[in-house]
Computed example of a mutant assay.
Amino acid sequence: MKACHEITISYSLKIYKCCVCKNSLWPFFKFARCQACELRLHCNCQSQLKHLCRPIQGGISSSSEHSVRANPINFLETNLQIDIATASNDFSINNYRVLKLIARGSFATVYLVKDKVSGDLFAMKIYSEEKAQNIDLGFGISLTAVANNEIEILSSLDHPNIIQLLEVIKSGNQDWLCLVFELANDHILTSQKAIEPPMSEKQARNIFIQLVKGVEYMHKNSIIHCDIKPENLLFKDNVLKICDFGISQRIISGSSVKLRAQGTRAFFPPEMCNSNKEEIEGAPLDIWAMGVTLYYVVFGVLPFQGDAVLELYDSICNSKLTFPEKCSAGLRNLLEGMLWKDYTKRMTLKMIKAHEWLNI
């Protein structure tokens, strides 16, 4: 039977929401079928399924409309039998041939894969749902929720400086989920130790300008990244790609995000280290992390350090920001503005773009 979305074992999805409960819809995990167009969609309310196929423009936000993504994400299924926990290479998932293991973590595995038709290379991140459902990352957040959040956020973003999620593959008979990304495999740096030598200000400026453009686009679309750091900045053909949106948050109303423990402590702003509030301002959080990242890129060390968590938090909240003698006056002024401990006085993206050091 011909469906209005031309689905067989695969289909494309822009962004949909339920007309009843207003929740976003996901075509995996628990399946529901729209009575109007046969498109399989899931809605938490599980009612009036015939109304669930109405598209909206871009993401899920009550405050503003977002642009429709030019290339919708493909959502696919497969009946492949594979033990993801032990597999390394020499297997295929749908049209992708796995070439080599890139990284294996506790919760997900990343592979370099090749499209068997086009020959193009991609990065594939595979989550084990069985493990994910049993892992609590704190504040009631499971790894499954992190994977779903990354899909939902990236579904509504389309910018040259943000990594593109191209496809989601759900196993039909096994508990694993594949996310296929454009390949951007050049890290700018690693923030685990001091760098010798650090980047020049000219090199750092080129990276930072692209970072500003990507973050500005996210914020305009009501997305706060919440984990900006060098490891989450990749390069593809000299173009910066911001990645890892698992703990990012969409601002539904106001300008605050929920205060959570996820992220990288060395990049936490002071308001995350000493706040008893359930929510903090979203944009200043990303601005602070951008400042720490820029400082690290140029000087090779983190601006605030501590051997233990409480010592690190004390340094972030109370230590004075210092600079090497080689630091230019313009960069020093920019970093002081971005790393202002009082978030109400911290630089905004508009102020950063207008700063003389960037020359945007």
Score class of each variant (00 low, 15 high):
Glu65Leu: 11
Ala123Glu: 12
Leu99Asn: 14
Ile102Tyr: 04
Cys178Lys: 06
Asn74Pro: 03
Val168Tyr: 08
Ala103Trp: 02
Phe122Ala: 04
Asp90Trp: 00
Glu152Ile: 15
Asn149Thr: 06
Arg104His: 08
Ile84His: 04
Ala145Lys: 14
Ile153His: 01
Pro72Trp: 04
Asn94Ala: 11
Lys100Gln: 14
Ala123His: 13
Ile126Asp: 03
Tyr96Ala: 11
Ile102Gln: 08
Leu121Met: 09
Ser64Thr: 15
Ser62Asn: 14
Gly119Ala: 13
Lys131Cys: 03
Ile153Cys: 06
Ala184Trp: 09
Ile84Trp: 05
Ala87Pro: 04
Gly172Thr: 00
Thr78Asn: 07
Ser142Arg: 08
Cys53Glu: 02
Arg97Thr: 11
Leu183Cys: 12
Ser92Thr: 12
Phe122Pro: 03
Asn74Gln: 14
Ser106Met: 10
Cys53Met: 02
Gly105Glu: 08
Phe75Asn: 03
Arg97Trp: 00
Ala132Met: 10
Lys170Cys: 12
Leu112Phe: 04
Arg104Ile: 02
Asp175Gly: 13
Ser155Met: 14
Gln164Arg: 15
Pro72Gly: 01
Leu80Ala: 13
Thr78Gln: 09
Phe139Gly: 01
Ile93Tyr: 07
Ile135Asn: 07
Ser128Ile: 02
Ile93Cys: 13
Ser67Met: 10
Tyr127Arg: 02
Leu99Gly: 02
Ile153Tyr: 04
Leu157His: 02
Phe181Lys: 06
Asn185Phe: 00
Gln164Val: 07
Ala145Cys: 03
Asn71Tyr: 06
Pro160Tyr: 05
Tyr111Ala: 02
Glu129Met: 12
Val146Lys: 11
Leu76Gly: 08
Ser106Tyr: 00
Ala70Lys: 09
Arg69Asp: 05
Phe91Ile: 10
Pro160Leu: 03
Leu165Pro: 00
Leu189Asp: 10
Lys170Glu: 13
Ala184Pro: 03
Glu65Tyr: 00
Ile153Arg: 01
Val180Trp: 08
Asn74Ile: 11
Ile141Pro: 02
Glu130Pro: 01
Ile151Gln: 09
Asn173Glu: 11
Ala108Gln: 08
Ile188Phe: 09
Thr86Trp: 01
Gln57Arg: 14
Ser62Gly: 15
Arg97Gln: 14
Leu80Val: 10
Thr109Glu: 06
Gly105Asn: 07
Leu165Asn: 06
Ile56Pro: 01
Asn95Lys: 15
Gln133Thr: 06
Gln81Tyr: 00
Glu129Val: 11
Gly138His: 05
Lys100Asp: 13
Val168Thr: 13
Asp136Gln: 08
Leu76Phe: 03
Leu137Thr: 11
Thr86Ile: 14
Gly140Asp: 07
Pro55Cys: 05
Leu99Ser: 10
